[in-house]
Write a protein that binds this DNA or RNA. Structure first.
Lengths: 212, 212
DNA sequence: ACTCTTATTGGACATCTGCGCAATAAGGGA
DNA sequence: TCCCTTATTGCGCAGATGTCCAATAAGAGT
């Protein structure tokens, strides 16, 4: 392979690891898989990463971190807190689709066994919660939301989303994807004193529109 | 090893597999681990189970199925629907403790890769939801709950519990165990039209009392 | 053109994995 | 007591896994 700069090669490794992890799961991604995906040798990966744990952590960070950044950007483009919440849900709809959520399942399950991946998973989960909490606080200040404890409400709505999405990902057919979003939004409306269904429900098309 | 009857040996294998899975996780449990735990040979396990997938499925069924049965029994000992819900939460508090929940994390993550484990996980998750839904329906008939769609509410409260417990198990310290229960019960009270905190919050002692 | 850093190779190593199979022995029924 | 089913053994096989390392070569700086 052509000799690359350390930063470029590192990025390529992370991108390749992410591609493999997306198709066969974080927990099933091996050094040789990543090397084969890049068309290089397996030794090269250990020249940039001390352990496979750190490769997986970097790949997961790339996936979930990018989702987070895109969602945050889309939310900041909105003017009102309600619109930001709607955008949040629409954006989450994409994350929840198909294989993407399997990566979260693997990250949570492996968190106790792979220190680097566990630390990354924890950090990103908290970041998502803080994103929602900040929007809630904003809405309370603007007088459109009623919420005693925005941080707690954020954890609840995010955990509800996670718990429901988990069923969609792990047990296909038990709950439908569109239902997850509707239920979570209804729960949030109840928490912050909005009339039920006052937040517009994103269609599948809208969810996909935010994705790119 | 002394020659046992097929049923007795089968049960011993499942029990040993469960013990191993409890300490090092379902996903990390190997044939040799289970054999060593029993003090027998690894070939014996394949004499009773066609694949490791089925051993893990049986072990998980034993763990989660027993939890479910105990919880159901405790709930049936109560007279009112509200008491049954309180008992449900108190019982869930035990499940959520420490390592027990890691098994659910592994089951969900592995569901897509191990067919037998996936089927078991799906079945037990639905059984838990049906248990809650039945109690809600009962409460609605008795006029103490207001709930349009008990099945949906059951999925929501269970998924909220799962999503919050998941954080406790995967990211220790982010949320406290006692908080999980309080938040989930508050959410349920909101859903079924009960005053907040009208369901008594079980203490850690009560949770442990139901365990045995 | 030459050197020297270092990106890259390719494979070795030790270990683990699920699974299968021939050999052994235990124990119940006759 | 003998026999015949079958529980149990112990190891082998084929493949996978993370990690490490000596050898190679590419390319930047002089």
């Amino acid at each position: 392979m052509t000799r690359l700069s350390p930063t470029a090669r590192r990025e390529e490794i992370v991108a390749a690891a992410l591609r493999v992890a997306t198709s066969k799961g974080l927990a099933n991604t091996t050094v040789r898989d990543v090397a084969a995906e890049m068309g290089t040798s397996s030794g090269l990966i250990h020249h940039y990463f001390a352990s496979m744990d750190e490769v997986l952590a970097a790949a997961f960070e790339e996936a979930a971190g990018t989702d987070l950044a895109k969602t945050e950007a889309a939310m900041l483009a909105c003017t009102t807190a309600s619109e930001r919440l709607s955008t949040f849900f629409a954006s989450y709809a994409r994350t929840e689709e198909y294989r993407a959520f399997q990566m979260w399942l693997d990250a949570w399950a492996e968190a106790g066994r792979r220190p680097a991946l566990g630390a990354t998973s924890r950090r990103l989960n908290i970041a998502w919660q803080e994103l929602v909490a900040a929007t809630l606080i904003e809405g309370v200040k603007a007088g459109v939301f009623i919420c005693d404890d925005p941080a707690a409400t954020a954890w609840r709505v995010l955990s509800l989303l996670d718990g429901l999405s988990l069923q969609v990902a792990a047990h296909p057919g038990v709950i439908e994807g569109a239902t997850v979003l509707d239920w979570a939004m209804t729960a949030l409306e109840g928490e912050v004193g909005l009339p039920t269904r006052s937040l517009p429900r994103p269609s599948a098309d809208e969810g996909r529109a935010v994705a790119n």
